[in-house]
Design a protein around this nucleic acid. Structure first.
Lengths: 163, 163
DNA sequence: TTTGATGCAAAACGTTTGCACGGCA
DNA sequence: TGCCGTGCAAACGTTTTGCATCAAA
């Protein structure tokens, strides 16, 4: 999804972050980070682990959890709670904040940007004497597929045919 | 927090909801609902269970989980994900939608209302052909106590002195 | 060589569920 | 009386952690 040059730049950023913290630059860290930048979409630790299976010698979930947390600290990933029990993560290129539309049926996630919102948020933060660090705006509802065709893409529950 | 008359009205609404669904009106359901309306603030199932301990014969967590879910269905509670692992619930009096400021340090939650946001959301939903049902806007940052005094009220981790 | 990273398995966490019993209608 | 709700404990899915081993610096 992201261009090769961007991936390279972000990998360098991540390596620098690790060095600054006196953390080691390991194969696992580079492979996970690379895949994250490559994906460019929302993912869960589980889906990321799946995506990493193409590599020889899978990376354990415990390690992926640890690396993903590091990337949140490095500022290269944001964590989302869309009301489900799993956490979603997303690589957000610098200065491209956006918000989310979440389908209540299929969980489909779409993104949008509204500059006015950023302005309003600053006003609120000032009014309440609050040091703003981040925000999340999620709109929940029926996606266009559900609305127009009466059904979404395959729902999560239906995907689990057995058990 | 809520006036007695309001509590009474909401209890009636909840009873009517139960009747409509052919569900039984039990002591536990009334006690939990009453406490929820009484609190009038954000709570977790855990904190609600604590608050209910004053009653003779505690109500089991399993039951509280079930009743809280019912109240979400009845439209009298909304569920929040503030990025923590626990779910927060909140009784919202009819037509009083508001959003939240969440302190990244102490978890303190403040509320605010911005009418413009509602308008912007409708525009977005229309643009993306989305049937809007709900939304959540959370601002994360340092609360005024942390900003001004350098520390919040007792943090969660510090509260767990042992272990 | 030293220290931190990894993988495994077990624990932890909040939440849900199966089942036997008890209470509402 | 019949059926639904409750409480218990066990199961659940996700995430975290202790520990022995392994690899980067």
């Amino acid at each position: 999804m992201a261009a090769t040059a961007d991936i390279h730049r972000e990998l360098t950023n991540f390596s620098n972050f690790l060095k600054r913290r006196n953390l080691k630059i390991t194969n696992q860290r580079l492979l996970v980070a690379e895949k994250v930048f490559e994906l460019g979409t929302h993912f869960t630790v589980d889906s990321l682990a799946e995506a990493l299976k193409d590599r020889k010698g899978e990376i354990s979930r415990a390690t992926i959890y640890r690396i993903v947390s590091l990337m949140v600290e490095s500022g290269q990933l944001t964590e989302h709670n869309f009301g489900q029990s799993v956490k979603y993560y997303e690589y957000i290129p610098p200065r491209e904040h956006h918000d989310h539309l979440v389908c209540v049926d299929c969980g489909r996630i779409e993104e949008f940007v509204v500059p006015e919102i950023e302005k309003i948020q600053l006003e609120i933060a000032t009014k309440y004497n609050f040091d703003l660090e981040d925000h999340s705006l999620n709109l929940y509802g029926k996606c266009k597929f559900l609305k127009e065709e009466g059904h979404c893409e395959r729902r999560k529950e239906e995907a689990d045919t057995i058990k």
